[in-house]
Amino acid sequence: MNETDLHELLQVAWSESQGDWDMHEQVLHRKLMVLPLADLVDFNVIQTKRRRLAFTPLLINAAFMVWDGALGNDGFLDFTDNLSVIPNELFETLVADPDRVIEVPALWTPHEGHFWHLPFKVFDEQSRVKAGTDLLNEYLPPDNRPGDLWPRLDGHPNRQTAQNMLPRLYARFGESAFA
């Protein structure tokens, strides 16, 4: 699986689920179940890279505001996980301009979908062996693990950053999130 294949798969799943996160997870699960192991590995590596691109101070501020201040480490992982499975054009738009999260109401409600875990779950179901996590993690570079990325986000969320860099989100959500 290459990035184009992944983007097509995510676009189809997004369209079929019509913004319903639970349905999105079911559609992705169904589509991943028919992939061979090599494609599951590729999906996992590419999706992980996408999720890590979202580890930015501006996106943590955006997530904090739209989730009304209820965002800890796990919450931000959930938010970036959700970002990792949206269509590529939308993903790239939001990473480049996090203030545009205001245009995607589906991201405003906290959702713990565990999309990061889907390739592991599918591998375990296909092989009937609980080895997916260990096996698929072998293909991820060590610097792609969440613990290595948190220092980049130190000092965020930050009211001043949100006001200056995310004016539309701050106007809609900022006061209650930072209260």
Rank of each mutant, 00 (worst) to 15 (best):
E3W: 00
L6Y: 05
L6M: 09
L6I: 08
L10H: 04
A13G: 10
A13N: 08
W14M: 04
S15D: 15
E16D: 15
Q18H: 12
Q18L: 11
G19M: 11
D20K: 02
D20F: 13
D22K: 04
D22Y: 04
H24F: 05
H24L: 09
E25H: 04
Q26A: 05
H29Y: 08
L32F: 02
L32Y: 00
L32G: 02
P36L: 01
A38N: 07
A38T: 09
D39Q: 13
D39Y: 09
L40A: 09
L40I: 07
V41H: 11
F43R: 00
N44A: 03
V45W: 01
I46A: 09
Q47E: 12
T48H: 12
T48K: 10
R50V: 02
R50L: 13
R51I: 06
R52G: 09
A54C: 08
F55I: 03
P57V: 06
P57F: 00
I60C: 10
I60Q: 07
N61C: 14
N61Y: 05
A62G: 09
A63L: 01
A63S: 15
M65C: 08
V66Y: 02
V66M: 10
W67P: 01
A70E: 09
L71H: 00
G72K: 04
N73L: 11
N73G: 11
F76G: 04
D81K: 00
D81M: 03
D81G: 04
N82R: 07
N82P: 00
L83G: 09
I86L: 08
I86Q: 00
E89C: 01
E89A: 14
L90H: 03
F91C: 04
F91G: 03
F91T: 02
F91A: 12
F91N: 01
E92F: 03
E92T: 13
T93C: 03
L94Y: 06
A96R: 08
D97C: 05
P98A: 13
R100G: 12
V101F: 04
E103T: 13
E103M: 15
E103Q: 14
V104T: 08
V104Y: 06
P105D: 05
A106H: 13
T109F: 00
H111Y: 14
E112H: 12
H114C: 14
F115A: 10
F115Y: 15
F115W: 06
F115D: 11
W116Y: 14
H117Y: 15
H117P: 11
P119I: 14
K121N: 13
V122I: 13
F123V: 15
F123K: 12
E125Y: 00
Q126V: 06
R128V: 12
V129K: 13
G132V: 03
T133G: 03
D134F: 01
L136R: 11
L136Y: 03
N137T: 02
E138H: 08
P141H: 15
P141A: 14
P146T: 01
P146Q: 07
D148W: 04
D148M: 13
D154Q: 08
H156P: 07
H156V: 12
P157W: 10
P157F: 02
N158C: 06
N158R: 10
Q160D: 14
T161A: 13
T161K: 06
A162T: 03
N164W: 02
M165W: 05
L166A: 10
L166K: 03
R168W: 08
R168V: 00
L169W: 01
L169C: 11
A171Q: 15
R172H: 14
F173E: 07
F173D: 11
F173Q: 06
G174W: 05
E175N: 12
A177R: 00
A179D: 10
